[in-house]
Design a protein around this nucleic acid. Structure first.
Lengths: 222, 222
DNA sequence: CAAAACGTGAACTAAAAGAGAACATAAGGT
DNA sequence: ACCTTATGTTCTCTTTTAGTTCACGTTTTG
């Protein structure tokens, strides 16, 4: 009935209406979907209206109304949603939580730090730690020996605390984020890949900032 | 009223709509039915529309709607996603689904077939395929080279259909269940572990029964 | 056997999606 | 009123994804 983008937008609108009551502007929707232009939003809105999922008043700002949701998606009844201090995670009901997906992270050669969240993934709440969490998609093979494959989605609990032996998202020199096993040796910090083709990298503790630690992983087979 | 293929497709579409709301594309349906060309899907869709089981918007992508199901098939209304023969899965709301956890399965040496479900796990509905799904906890290291570790939880879509190269739960001689990559070679079936310390096992096709195929995996780090 | 259902692959057409800019209208403040 | 900002609408382009059609061969079934 709906395309993925249409559904994503519909759920976003529905979430906003049910959590605060103010309907989102085209710009906000644009950002929520990770677009750079709102003309795309306009088309999606038209498609949703054509299919009878939303109603709107012509030429009126923020005048959207969700008429129905696709089958199988339970209405987000109560005023719910943003979990305090969270990076934007929203809770659905029944133990589910929606985390922002902050783009891809290299398990291999470090790449630049995160882009904006451009989509969301749903993960079991039980998998999410207590703190603020977000999701990343793995790119590269450097953690392959620990069973973290290219394309996997990982859940990161954000925060600087980490013990030796934990797998962390580390930012080196404030510019490159990478997923590695952490080992602290006094003043120096080692980032250990799990792939015999990659080298352990050792840095002065000042240069490495732990952004978060790995708490969960999931993978889909097609 | 319907041919086997038509019904199979109808149930697939219905399952998809009820589990996530996004209707499948012709390519996805093609894959779901194990076809190599989508023109066959086109014919089936036409047949279903002609018989009044589905409605569609002409020339619109992913704009299918199930109008009715054949007699004797319970509608997969709200609380469900799993079509007939459900192993006991229950859906929560908001894209979550609760799957029965059928105990542990050896990725290494095959162990006895499943015990009863003694607990449940929550997984994102998006991760669950169309059919009946259940979860298993991995025991052993034999699939370690494919990133499936001891202690991981895997989601299995139950059913005998599997193609070479897929990872399946295979029952050998009706008594030992194991998770392996499947390779069909005419009359014989090879179960391929992903660990250099384990051997490929080859059986006559009669002795091996595919119980389901791997569709998802998740892991928690502590 | 013949009809209907299936399966395949290629060529073609049409939507969906993303970007960017110009323009239109609504709302708010002074 | 007048100006300003926020918002919504349209248009044009490009790329990607999805749907349609056709020709031809195989299988199933009444």
């Amino acid at each position: 009935m709906l395309t993925a983008k249409q559904q994503q937008l519909l759920l976003f609108i529905d979430g906003r209406l049910n959590s605060g009551g103010v309907s989102p502007s085209f710009d906000e929707m644009k950002d929520a979907l990770g677009l750079k232009s709102k003309s795309g939003v306009h088309r999606l809105i038209n498609a949703l209206e054509e299919r009878g999922f939303i109603k709107r008043m012509a030429n009126r700002a923020r005048a959207l109304e969700v008429v129905k949701l696709p089958d199988g998606i339970a209405p987000t009844d109560q005023p719910s949603n943003v979990v305090e201090g969270n990076f934007g995670a929203t809770t659905g009901s029944a133990g589910m939580i929606e985390l922002p997906l902050h783009g891809r992270i290299a398990a291999g050669a470090p790449i630049e730090a995160f882009e904006n969240a451009d989509s969301f993934v749903q993960v079991p709440a039980a998998m999410v730690g207590r703190g603020d969490c977000y999701a990343l998609e793995i790119s590269g093979e450097s953690m392959i020996d620990l069973g973290i494959l290219d394309g996997d989605t990982v859940i990161i609990e954000s925060g600087p605390a980490a013990r030796s032996g934990e797998i962390v998202v580390a930012l080196v020199d404030d510019m490159e984020a990478t997923l590695k096993t952490l080992r602290k040796d006094g003043r120096s910090v080692a980032l250990i890949p799990a792939n015999k083709d990659h080298e352990i990298q050792t840095y002065d503790a000042d240069r490495v900032q732990v952004q978060g630690r790995l708490v969960g992983l999931f993978r889909q087979y097609h």
